[in-house]
């Protein structure tokens, strides 16, 4: 008992407190200056980029992932296809960071095989710089781990749809459309929104992929925080990093709380 609490205190609670308290300190004195610094244009634009990037890839990944999950769920339960897709997605959902960035550079970069191939067919993709931009390349790269994550999270929910519900709809004279509109969609909706929130936090807190891909500037909040840690800091910058970290925690905490509420709601229907 004691080791567990001691350990989590030192390595989890203290760091959290350091961030929370540090966000309101400057040179040992309490201040709101760090929080006020969050309204600086650079920080605001980083926050905006982060939120937009996370939201777009979360919704996009959720929609595509949900369709994929449904397609997989119509395959045989013990079939090789389902195992193959599930295992592949299990790996790809974790496949963030350095290797992922390299994979996209090798395919879509200036000398990547897709770029060369497209150029041969006559499609000019430009000098390959779009890959490094947060609203083009990064979105594509993020989708690459968001879609698999959605499949893993959402597949159990889709599998929870019982064939009897569909049969009941048909017996009562409902069409496929009615089944989806009136039965399946309301049941799946909480899981879907919950999964989307999870994808949002996943993209929002991702650092490694962006760090490996973007080498100039810090267009995203995690990169901006990383910058305050590594660059030669101007005095006081350090605690602005803590304020930004606090901002991230707040956003993620809100999303996760909503997720927990929705998860509880959806498990009511989908309990085995």
């Amino acid at each position: 008992m004691v080791p567990f609490f001691a350990y989590t205190t030192v390595f989890l609670l203290i760091p959290t407190l350091v961030v929370v308290i540090g966000a309101f300190l400057s040179g040992g004195r309490p201040t709101l200056g760090n929080v006020r610094a969050l309204t600086e244009p650079a920080v605001i634009s980083a926050t905006q980029h982060s939120v937009v990037l996370s939201a777009v890839t979360a919704v996009g990944g959720a929609v595509i992932g949900a369709v994929l999950a449904y397609a997989v769920s119509t395959a045989r339960v013990d079939g090789v296809l389902r195992r193959f897709v599930a295992s592949l997605c299990g790996v790809l959902a974790q496949f963030g960071g350095v290797a992922l960035a390299f994979a996209f550079l090798a395919s879509f970069g200036a000398t990547g095989f897709l770029t060369t191939w497209l150029a041969k067919v006559g499609v000019d993709t430009g000098p390959g710089l779009w890959l490094y931009e947060w609203d083009k390349g990064l979105m594509l790269v993020y989708l690459y781990f968001q879609i698999p994550l959605m499949l893993i999270v959402f597949l159990p929910a889709v599998e929870g749809l019982r064939p009897q519900w569909r049969e009941a709809t048909e017996t009562l004279g409902g069409s496929t459309w009615v089944y989806w509109r009136r039965v399946a969609a309301p049941i799946l909706f909480p899981s879907f929104v919950g999964a989307t929130l999870l994808l949002f936090t996943n993209a929002f807190s991702a650092y490694a992929t962006a760090a490996a891909l973007v080498s100039q500037g810090s267009p995203l909040l995690p990169l901006a925080i990383g910058n305050t840690l590594t660059s030669e800091v101007i005095l006081g910058q350090e605690n602005i990093g803590k304020a930004m970290a606090l901002e991230m925690v707040v956003v993620v905490a809100v999303a996760m709380t909503l997720y927990a509420v929705l998860d509880r709601r959806s498990s009511k229907w989908l309990a085995p």
Partner: peptide, 21 residues
């Protein structure tokens, strides 16, 4: 609660807090 708390603390934030530790 303690075990699930890290879900709301992104790794990058943990780094900020862990620096003094």
């Amino acid at each position: 609660f303690l075990c699930l708390l890290p879900l709301t603390v992104p790794a990058i934030v943990l780094v900020v807090g862990l620096t003094p530790v």
